[in-house]
Nucleic acid binder design. Structure first.
Lengths: 221, 221
DNA sequence: ACCTGAACACCGTTCAAGT
DNA sequence: ACCTGAACACCGTTCAAGT
């Protein structure tokens, strides 16, 4: 199947396919060479080394995160819809996004969405540094949520996990005399619902007062 | 310096010291053996293999995350203070916490704080499933924020980064005719301030309406 | 300009053998 | 019960040599 000269694109394609299917650990230079039917050293000629190969894959993934269109009637709704769209995109490429995370470029990947958010925050009547603060708060919240979700999905069976902890006999005390709460915390998290709820609460809190409605106490910086 | 029989604790201590100083990658079985003045294979007898060694270190770290005392006058303030304390603890052990993250146990580490939060949410007048939702939203937000921060700290010089993007000549258009916003987004993020602000906004949004004040539009699940 | 095999310096892990 | 050296099967990378 080695019809002509090997190209950099072919190397990247094969590497991306390997990562997509079996994760980054499955990407070994020797395995990749075998897949391509060439000597290991040919790959080095085309992509330098393993690190820059991964760099290239990450760059591709960041570029793929494309246009995001807001939906909804009010600015708040539209901001929430942007957050949801971004979460969906990130979750559609688990392994490659994990690579992006590892290299600390998740934030970079979010940059195009910032522009969209700016427009909506303006529409909500905020401007300047205050508007920038809202954009960043939303950005951190969405990226953070996605990171937490990945974290949970990767987590093995946890002992004791929330389930055991809140279902235990001592749960009544822990739950501060609120069995319904203990039951709720013993159930697995519905991350879809939680995401929508918390984004709505955050956006609402940010747009209502600009600075958050909790009074600054003696411990506020 | 090899005075008596090697113990499991000694192995764990040496491994933890290595990770603390130079990160998890610096922890090789051969290097650890050299540090301890024993044969590589002795380590295997005591801790099984590298994976379970890391498991043990992670378990230690999770256990170390100790008691968190809320401070402040109102429940909202006290919830914010818990969030700040947790963030501080996590950021004090970057390498070990990174290991905890990699193994997907960040959430597990947060469990003790859940109990504290429950009490405060109760004090704020919420109960049952609604209170549980607030606890989880705060938890996700804090953990997410810390993950994003780690992500940013690991990130190399980004090109184009926020700086370049928003300081560019085209920023006027991107910023939707708001140069003050463009300047604000070109500045580096003050994560301390951002954290306090967003936690306050989130808590305020959650406690005010329980469900977030943004009206459910046609796209809400 | 592109590809190659051989070699180097690492890994984690296993095993049979010691005391 | 605890420790050992030798060996195995992997790595990523370099280098001198080919065409």
């Amino acid at each position: 199947m080695t019809r002509s000269a090997l190209t950099r694109e072919q190397v990247l394609d094969a590497a991306a396919a390997l990562v997509r299917r079996h994760g980054p650990d499955a990407l070994t230079m020797r395995g990749l060479a075998a897949e391509l039917g060439t000597a290991v050293t040919s790959i080095y000629w085309h992509v330098g080394n393993r690190e820059s190969l991964l760099d290239a894959l990450v760059a591709r993934t960041v570029a793929e995160l494309g246009a995001i269109r807001p939906r909804g009637a009010t600015p708040a709704e539209r901001i929430v819809s942007v957050a949801q769209a971004l979460r969906r995109e990130l979750r559609a490429r688990p392994h490659l996004v994990a690579l992006v995370h590892e290299r600390g470029l998740t934030e970079r990947m979010f940059l195009p969405a910032q522009r969209v958010l700016v427009r909506e925050v303006h529409a909500a009547g905020l401007r300047g540094a205050q508007a920038a603060g809202v954009v960043r708060a939303v950005q951190f919240h969405v990226v953070g949520h996605v990171l937490v979700e990945r974290n949970r999905e990767r987590a093995p069976a946890q002992s004791p996990g929330e389930r055991d902890l809140w279902a235990a006999r001592t749960a009544a005390e822990s739950a501060d005399g609120d069995p319904a709460l203990a039951r709720a915390l013993a159930r697995p998290v519905d991350t879809d619902r939680l995401f929508v709820r918390s984004v709505r609460a955050l956006v609402s809190g940010l747009l209502d007062s600009g600075d958050g409605a909790v009074r600054a106490g003696p411990y506020s910086q």
